[in-house]
Design a binder for these strands. Structure first.
Lengths: 112, 112
DNA sequence: TCCAATACGTAGGGTTGCTACCTATAGCGA
DNA sequence: TCGCTATAGGTAGCAACCCTACGTATTGGA
């Protein structure tokens, strides 16, 4: 996975991993890796700042806790975050359709 | 179309529009707009610098000419550019699959 | 004792597309 | 003639954002 391709799509991915319940940052990173068969293994320097950004934007809400002697910041979606996730999915569908149409050479959007 | 979403995918789109024959910059911009039903209408400040970048990278080759009193720079794919386009298509397929898997909520890749 | 895994973080940089602006010609309508 | 639009090219500077490279700390196994 070329890295820079992710630009502008990361936020939706992070929100999606929080959809099924609260997670702490490190778990989000692992969930994303597992959901993609290891093909999307983000560095922590990408994940943590992005989560901070989402929290500042009011899309997620974090709380500190301590588990097994390690401090954790557990995040959950806000109502606004849930709406944003839905928007991100819509946007992705359109974006993918547009790129596929223009890039050509592919079977897209799977015409039948 | 959110703007930053395009990051890292523009080069492939430009190469794809040159696949069926040489085009000048302005025509590339219009071809892209038409191929996407107007949904991808790039500003010239995006297209021209990107073409310069591709030429510097050796993926396309440009030549000046004058048509109807207007100077044109006509670009065509190099052999390297053709390979790069193929790579961009492969990369896009994988990228789209990964994002779709992680983003969820969607019918992807259009299972039937 | 040392290292990996877990868990969090920041500083700085590089890439890249966009905004805003500029030049110039052809052609049309007022 | 004047002004506007379409065509055709260009640049400077900015902002977003993800990555690299670090740093801290704890737990637990080799």
């Amino acid at each position: 996975m070329r890295a820079e391709a992710l630009k502008g799509h990361l936020d939706g991915l992070l929100l999606a991993t929080l959809e099924d319940g609260p997670q702490h940052g490190y778990a989000v990173k692992e969930a994303l890796r597992d959901a993609t068969g290891g093909r999307l293994d983000l560095p922590t320097g990408t994940v943590y700042p992005a989560l901070h950004r989402l929290e500042r934007a009011g899309l997620i809400k974090g709380d500190w806790s301590v588990v097994g002697g390690r401090r954790r910041r557990t995040y959950e979606l806000t109502e606004q975050g849930r709406r944003s996730l839905a928007g991100a999915r819509d946007h992705w569908q359109e974006f993918a359709a547009v790129i596929s149409a223009a890039l050509g050479g592919g079977l897209w959007p799977a015409t039948n």
